[in-house]
Design a protein around this nucleic acid. Structure first.
Length: 475
RNA sequence: GCCCCCAUCGUCUAGUGGCCUAGGACACCACCCUUUCAAGGUGGCGGCACGGGUUCGAAUCCCGUUGGGGGUGCCA
């Protein structure tokens, strides 16, 4: 291997969103660049769509920044557009023609098919190889695949050899003169002095073609590394249509970046030791392409969420409050926004923090604080209020709460005493109070919540619930 | 059709010939803790696809079978 500078390229196809599989590949490249002191080169594939929609490229840059691949980092270079090099692509093809590595072909797709059918074979039969055709409108330039074997040395998979006899003379320049992606890719890699090509496994079968191009162009072949793809439960490659694959979507649902990064890195690789939850610095330290798994990995949202919960709980409270902020100010928040009280939220925050797996669950835990009335869940309300003694407990608690010292311990003691009077443990006795005030059977610790809501509002809700349940019962 | 890749608990993985009675994580189940729900603690369930070799010894090496995935465009 040469001692040229280490340059890792990441070339996502711009499709209007950032694929989680792409995110993992980016992370691999990024970790490597950081550890080796190399460069992460972001190259945007040139498509008509992408050219017309600059926001797509911006989306990729934003998503990369979110997972920690920041464009302002000295190890980051780009973004570059492939189209910048179009003239170079054609020039390279012409060099190949002049050196005899490529030749012109006048066969149309239909003619190729007919010939194949007649021969009982498949694909192009290299018919034009020695016909000595020159460049002309309607002529495509094809690469003359040499005899022999092409061995792709892959850091993840070892040596993979391909019999060149199975590779047909592929097109370099279309009959309209434009270069194909395969060629553009190789020429760009050469131009950008890319040392390592780390990409998804699906590209492995095309790699011998690219390698032959590097060789024919007289350039050093980069180090290849084909990493396994991410699949869905059907073991199919993740696709936009079938699966939830946009990292933006996970971000919007309240997955925190560190959790996403950590989880993505455990797909196809594992840090040393018995814990998978490790900081990025450890990843940078330990990640080796040679250790990457060979088989496809299932993107398990449950496990992602579990990681996310751990990361959320590990946050300092202030950071948690800040992270939850966008979800509390969202358009679809259940309360009228003028009623939201940041100070109040800061006080419940620690109680909520250890209960959520995703940030978007936060509003559901605190809505009762900011809604004018308890958000009653009818099924829960009926079930709890129909239980024996519920109404008695409510009545007794109302009487006591009218005068009791307003702090959690005192409120709890009241509930405890009232429950005892009716032969109920605290677990049961707190249920009607909880449903009356918060509307649900589950939520943050009750008495702490009551303190925050305030005596007047708590009493008002308790009385309202008693009236409602009593009324329903007498019908 | 042809070519290539892959194969350890349900899932993600550790494992590179003896440390494997196969380890961890997520999920699931039970119990403990408990003010609901979580969190936390303890324990449990559960796997080397199959068949042949090689070897004193194989999850680990070789061959085959089966099963998955991907590629094979004048798409990117």
């Amino acid at each position: 291997m040469s001692d040229r500078p280490l340059r890792f390229r990441f070339a996502p196809s711009p499709t209007g969103f950032f694929h989680v599989g792409g995110a993992r590949t980016a992370l691999y490249n990024w970790a490597l660049a950081l550890r080796t002191g190399g460069t992460f080169v972001l190259r945007i594939e040139d498509t008509d769509e992408a050219r017309n929609r600059p926001e797509w490229t911006q989306g990729i840059i934003d998503a990369l920044a979110w997972i920690g691949v920041r464009a302002d980092d000295p190890h980051f270079e780009g973004p570059y557009f492939q189209s910048r090099y179009a003239a170079e692509h054609i020039a390279a093809a012409q060099r190949l023609y002049k050196s005899g590595h490529a030749y012109y072909c006048d066969l149309t797709g239909e003619q190729i098919q007919e010939r194949a059918k007649a021969a009982g074979a498949q694909g192009y039969d290299n018919h034009s190889r020695d016909r000595g055709l020159g460049p002309a409108p309607g002529h495509a330039l094809r690469f003359r695949v040499p005899d022999g074997t092409t061995v792709v040395t892959d850091l993840v998979r070892g040596d993979v050899s391909f019999d060149n006899a199975n590779i047909e003379d592929f097109v370099l320049l279309r009959s309209n003169g434009t270069p194909v992606f395969l060629l553009a890719n190789v020429v760009d890699d050469i131009t950008m002095r890319i040392s390592h090509v780390v990409r998804a496994e699906e590209h492995l079968p095309n790699t011998p073609k690219q390698q032959m191009l590097f060789e024919a162009l007289g350039d050093e072949v980069p180090v290849w590394a084909h990493v396994p793809v991410l699949v869905n439960e059907q073991r199919k490659k993740l696709s936009k249509r079938r699966d939830k694959v946009a990292v933006e979507q996970y971000r919007d649902e309240g997955i925190v970046a560190d959790a996403m990064v950590n989880y993505l890195m455990t797909l196809g690789w594992a840090p040393r030791g018995d814990t998978e939850i490790v900081p990025w610095t450890t990843v940078v330290d330990q990640f080796r392409l040679e250790d990457v798994t060979h088989s496809p990995a299932f993107f398990d949202i449950k496990k992602l969420t579990a990681f996310n919960g751990e990361y959320i709980r590990a946050l300092p409270v202030d950071d948690f409050v800040a992270a939850a902020q966008p979800f509390l100010a969202a358009d679809d928040v259940p309360w009228p926004c003028e009623r939201f009280d940041p100070a109040l939220f800061e006080q419940v925050a620690p109680l909520v923090q250890e209960r959520v797996g995703r940030l978007d669950e936060v509003p559901g835990y605190v809505d009762f604080l900011f809604l004018p009335d308890a958000p009653i869940d009818d099924a829960a309300f009926t079930k709890v209020m129909d239980a024996p003694k519920s109404l008695d407990i409510l009545a007794d608690v109302i009487a006591a709460y009218d005068t009791v010292a307003w702090h959690a311990d005192a409120l709890k003691d009241v509930a405890l005493a009232v429950g005892e009077q009716h032969g109920l443990k605290l677990g049961k006795a707190q249920a009607p109070i909880r449903v009356a005030v918060t509307g649900r059977t589950v939520g943050p610790p009750l008495f702490e919540s009551l303190v925050l809501l305030g005596r007047d509002e708590v009493l008002r809700r308790l009385r309202a619930a008693l009236g409602r349940a009593g009324g329903a019962q007498s019908e």
